[in-house]
Structures are given as structure tokens and as C-alpha cells.
Deep mutational scan, measured.
Amino acid sequence: MDVFMKGLSKAKEGVVAAAEKTKQGVAEAAGKTKEGVLYVGSKTKEGVVHGVATVAEKTKEQVTNVGGAVVTGVTAVAQKTVEGAGSIAAATGFVKKDQLGKNEEGAPQEGILEDMPVDPDNEAYEMPSEEGYQDYEPEA
């Protein structure tokens, strides 16, 4: 019985440690998101679009440190934060509304985080759909 109880105690310690790591990862992701939003706020009209992409990228980098179902929630929060940063930029006159959601080359930025393969159960990952990809044929 002692062996059984000791095993359960060790398992509990492992769960607590994993929860603490997840909590730490979420806190880091939130900190990076805040950094990115402050970065966007300090940019001029020309830099705002690039700044919004930076927020998304920093958040995406930190999301990889967070495991399990938390990833889905962090990704949703990050996307809403990026959308909010863009709205703030438009409201303050840093950028025109028609410039939001495009990178410096004018290509749409939507789907940055949505296409990231995420499995809350950590069982399997699927690649994003290939609808947006084109076949590449090298020139002879």
C-alpha cells in the first residue's frame, strides 16, 4: 500500500510541476504579447503594419512553449490582441483601416495563427491545408 501511495504522490508532483510550467509559459506569452502591443503603439504610420505582424510573430513563438489545451486559448487571445492593436492603430490615425491585415508588401496577414497546427491532446499534428499553395516548377 505504501508503494501505491508513494507512486500516487510522485504522479501528483509531476502534474503540479507540469501545471506550473504551463502557467509560466502562458505568463511569458502574455508578456511578449504586451511587449508587441507597446511596440505597435510606438510606431509611426509606416511601421504600424509591420508592428502588428511582430506582435503576432512574438506571440506565436511563445505559444510553442505552452502545451496542451492552453495553446488553443493563448492563440485565440493573441489573435484578438493583434486585431485590437490594429483597431487602436486605425482609431489613433497611425494607419488607414484599409491597410490593416496586410503586410508591407500588401499581402493579407489573416491566418497567421489560424494555420498553425495545434492539437490540445498532444496526440497528432496535421499540416495546414494546401489550398493556398501553388506547385513550383523550376525553369529549365
Rank of each mutant, 00 (worst) to 15 (best):
T33M: 15
G68D: 07
K60E: 01
G31E: 07
D98K: 06
A29F: 15
K60R: 10
E123C: 13
V16E: 05
Q24L: 12
T33K: 00
V74R: 01
T54P: 01
G86V: 15
G36P: 01
K96I: 03
N103L: 08
A89N: 03
D121R: 04
S9D: 03
E114P: 09
Y125C: 08
E35I: 14
V26R: 00
L113N: 01
A29W: 14
E104A: 13
V49T: 09
V118Y: 10
E35C: 11
N65F: 12
T92E: 04
V55L: 14
E104W: 05
Y136A: 07
K43H: 04
S42E: 13
G67H: 07
F94M: 02
Q79P: 01
N122H: 05
N65G: 11
E139V: 11
K23Y: 08
Q134E: 05
T59V: 11
A56M: 13
K60D: 01
A90W: 14
T81D: 01
Q62P: 02
V3A: 02
P120W: 05
E114R: 10
Y39R: 09
D135C: 06
G111M: 15
A56E: 01
V71K: 07
P138S: 09
Q134N: 12
T72K: 06
G14F: 15
G132D: 14
M1I: 00
P128E: 07
K32C: 03
V37Q: 00
D121C: 08
E57H: 04
D135Y: 09
V55H: 01
E114Q: 06
G132A: 12
D98C: 14
S42Q: 12
N122W: 06
V82T: 06
L113V: 15
V71F: 07
G14I: 15
G73E: 03
A69K: 09
M127I: 12
K60A: 10
A30Y: 15
E83P: 04
V52N: 01
V15H: 01
Y133T: 08
Q109E: 13
I112Y: 05
T22A: 14
D98G: 13
G36H: 14
A56K: 09
P120L: 08
V48M: 15
D135K: 05
V40D: 00
E28T: 09
V82W: 12
E28P: 01
E114I: 12
V15P: 00
D135N: 13
E13F: 06
E130P: 11
A107D: 09
A11K: 00
G51Y: 11
A53H: 10
L8I: 03
G106V: 05
G68V: 12
V55W: 15
E123L: 10
A30T: 06
G93M: 03
E13G: 05
V82M: 11
T44K: 01
E110W: 04
K12H: 11
K32R: 10
V16G: 03
K34N: 01
G41E: 01
P108H: 10
V66W: 15
G67M: 12
V70A: 03
K60F: 08
G93P: 05
T54I: 15
M127S: 05
A56G: 05
Q99E: 07
Q109S: 10
D121S: 11
L38I: 04
T54M: 15
I88T: 03
E137H: 08
V74K: 01
G36I: 15
A90K: 08
Y133V: 05
T64Y: 10
I88L: 10
P138T: 07
A76D: 03
E61I: 06
A27G: 04
K58M: 14
Q109Y: 10
G84W: 09
P117Y: 05
E105G: 09
E131S: 12
K60W: 09
S9Q: 12
K97P: 10
V15L: 11
L100H: 03
V66N: 02
T72C: 13
E105Y: 12
K96S: 13
A107F: 04
A107Y: 05
A19K: 02
A27N: 08
Q134T: 03
K58C: 06
T54G: 07
V66F: 14
V3R: 15
M1A: 00
A27F: 12
A91L: 12
E105F: 06
Y136N: 04
M127P: 04
K23R: 11
V77R: 03
E104V: 06
K80H: 08
K34E: 00
D135M: 09
E105M: 11
D121F: 12
T54D: 01
E61C: 06
V118P: 12
E28F: 07
Q134V: 03
N65S: 12
V71N: 03
V82S: 04
Y136Q: 09
T44Y: 12
P120K: 08
D121N: 08
G68K: 13
A29D: 00
G106W: 13
K60H: 04
A78S: 03
V74A: 08
G25Q: 15
V3E: 00
E126V: 11
G25F: 15
A56H: 06
T64M: 06
T72V: 07
Y39D: 01
A124D: 14
V26G: 00
V118L: 08
K21A: 11
V118W: 05
N65L: 08
Y125S: 07
V16F: 14
V49N: 02
